[in-house]
Design a protein around this nucleic acid. Sequence first.
DNA 1: AAGGCTCTGTAGCAAAAGCTACACAAGGCC
DNA 2: GGCCTTGTGTAGCTTTTGCTACAGAGCCTT
Lengths: 224, 224
Amino acid sequence: MDNAGSLGELRALDVFRELSATGQQMLECGMQLNHFDELKTIINKGNTVSGAYVVVRGRLRVYSISPGGNEATLYFINPGEVCILALNCIFNNLQYPAWVQSEPDTCVGMIPSLTYRTLFQNEPSIQNLTVHALSVLVFRLMEELEEIHSLNLNERLAKFILMRSEGVGQLRMTQSELAAHLGTTREVIAKLLRRMVADKAVKTLRGAIVVEQAEQLARLAGQR
Amino acid sequence: MDNAGSLGELRALDVFRELSATGQQMLECGMQLNHFDELKTIINKGNTVSGAYVVVRGRLRVYSISPGGNEATLYFINPGEVCILALNCIFNNLQYPAWVQSEPDTCVGMIPSLTYRTLFQNEPSIQNLTVHALSVLVFRLMEELEEIHSLNLNERLAKFILMRSEGVGQLRMTQSELAAHLGTTREVIAKLLRRMVADKAVKTLRGAIVVEQAEQLARLAGQR
DNA sequence: AAGGCTCTGTAGCAAAAGCTACACAAGGCC
DNA sequence: GGCCTTGTGTAGCTTTTGCTACAGAGCCTT
């Protein structure tokens, strides 16, 4: 996880900005911006992807849905990063293997497949960016897999709250949403939260979790 | 999962062979072959990686170990494929984030980091190979994550046996090994196998599982 | 203010998975 | 053959997670 963080420096947006600044690339003609005010599903599983996505503002959430209807977040795409899964599909003409959803107030740039492939062939910076983005994703997925195997739900929940409340001290999210991220159900989240509340680690509000004692929470996340 | 399969055509070994055949690359000087007769741990978590690994024969297994000591397989690297995680580390000077183990009778070629980086900068085929290998890995990891979220142990076990016994009709593996792959314990595997035996889907031997009725097994793997 | 919607709290039972403990079987080695 | 190691079968208990059901609280709309 620290590893993955240290990889996050090469920002897709900067690369594209620089490229278009130099002028010799036909970049402007390609990138089109889309803005999403509220939560919206952008790609459905099985969709054909028409281009590479770059997150300008906000965040994208890539998730899967089980036959039973339960959602589970696979990973997030943060501002400045490309949606490498889309690249994946572009390079191999595949269908997108998951769902993608925008968080509220998210802005996404789209570069047509063909443009991206041309850029990749001619621009070392784009080659690096691509490899880099894929690497980051691999790290995130491995980290997620590892956590699922070695932590139980309680620990994963504590960790999730801790990570996503950083700075603010609270996490604006309903318990159903939390459940969808961790691949479980609302009632289970409620049950676990009840224990954390009893431990005075957090406080629950409508639509939010307030972190009371971060170290207490960290302890819950750390060991069983 | 069908997606991942269709990605597997670009074989690392062929690319390197071709490159060294053309002669203008200093490839021979780089690749050194290692042979492993039996199960052996090649990379430990946190190790610094000294080069790119190409599997010539056999198979590599990438896995994680939880604090409790339980293993869980993240994915396999098949003949002709590169260990992209190692590439990852090469490009970003990171430590390897998991353990790697060779199966019996496995042959692995190693290309020093520097050589690989040079190749990547100059050879389009290597660039493609790299992106391709990373893409395949991303698909495999996503598939694994999705399965963990949507299938229970019984279904995952059935699927695992089915996949790994293809053609032969049996799976040469102890129950402890099975447990390590699926991230659980021997007793649980034994319990699940007992049910499958009662259903006449499989038969258990010492060190092996024999598939009796593949469709029966497929049914167990398919739904709950 | 009334009604409706969404979110939360709680209980209780069912199923899944993990853990401990032990008996027995198969194969290798001396 | 006897011993040792490794692998398997089984039982019973605990913990975790999932599922069903319902009550109440907060917020918005009309």
